[in-house]
């Protein structure tokens, strides 16, 4: 197993002022794995992704992706990853194609490659018919899909999906699941964060439950479920509430 570990994170810590947002987080993700990072609002999921995607420096700890250190060799890491942020990080005034082409070119593709890749990726997320329309005219679910398609433009080996399904209908959500599963089948490694337990249960090979900046549970969905009861009876939601408590967050 060790030789296929694509991402290794060890002892990650990050504080914002006096507030410890991430505290001693360690986990590994194997190649072709969909790894879920679950946790209530403010648990520190996005902060972990920002550190892994080279935009935020950890206070302590080490991350390597594809054998490259995220801090020491961030340029090499950036060539391997694609990030779909929690926000819709795109230009609503531009068409779907223009958005994809722009980010593709910024990632180093030339004009022709970028246009070709944009076409492929829009097809992948089912937006080929709306390619020329401005993103601001899209529904929430369509915008989310554009957000994902942009992350695919650099042909990453590791894809970070930070809550890609917030606020969208079951059809769009289902489409996104299928897209993620297809990507995994094609060899991509995925880190996926979500609040939706049934989503994690369906998609993730392994998952970590985070709360208050620390990982409090780690394993396959079945392993986690069997820790609190009969894995065929309990849901991941039960596991989550068992671990994180029922108190309201944020």
């Amino acid at each position: 197993m060790a030789d296929t570990e694509f991402l290794v994170a060890h002892g990650l810590r990050k504080a914002f002022g006096p507030f410890q947002a991430v505290d001693s987080v360690s986990f590994t993700i194997s190649q072709r794995e969909i790894f879920g990072l679950l946790g209530p609002n403010g648990a520190g999921k996005t902060t972990v992704i920002r550190m892994m995607s080279t935009v935020l420096k950890p206070d302590d700890g080490h991350i390597s992706i594809g054998g490259f250190s995220v801090t020491a060799d961030s340029d090499s890491v950036r060539k391997l990853i694609g990030v779909c942020p929690q926000e819709l990080a795109l230009y609503p005034e531009l068409s779907a194609t223009d958005n994809l082409v722009f980010f593709g070119r910024m990632a180093g593709l030339n004009g022709r490659q970028a246009r070709e890749s944009a076409r492929e990726n829009l097809e992948r997320v089912g937006l080929q018919d709306r390619a020329r329309d401005r993103v601001e005219q899209f529904s929430g679910g369509m915008k989310r899909r554009v957000n994902i398609a942009i992350a695919l433009m650099s042909r990453p080996q590791l894809l970070f999906l930070d809550e890609p399904t917030v606020g969208i209908d079951p059809q769009s959500r289902n489409h996104i699941f299928e897209t993620v599963e297809n990507l995994r089948d094609e060899g991509m490694t995925v880190l996926y964060t979500t609040h939706y337990m049934e989503e994690a249960d369906r998609l993730c090979d392994r998952l970590a439950i985070m709360d208050h900046g620390s990982i409090i549970g780690l394993g396959t969905p079945r392993e986690l479920k069997s820790e609190i009861g009969n894995p065929d009876r309990v849901t991941l939601e039960d596991v989550f509430l068992e671990y994180t408590g029922r108190r309201l967050r944020d």
Binding site: R78, A89, Y91, I150, S154
Partner: peptide
């Protein structure tokens, strides 16, 4: 977060 997205993109 488009700027961060660009940064993580190289």
């Amino acid at each position: 977060q488009t700027l961060e997205r660009l940064m993580s993109n190289g």
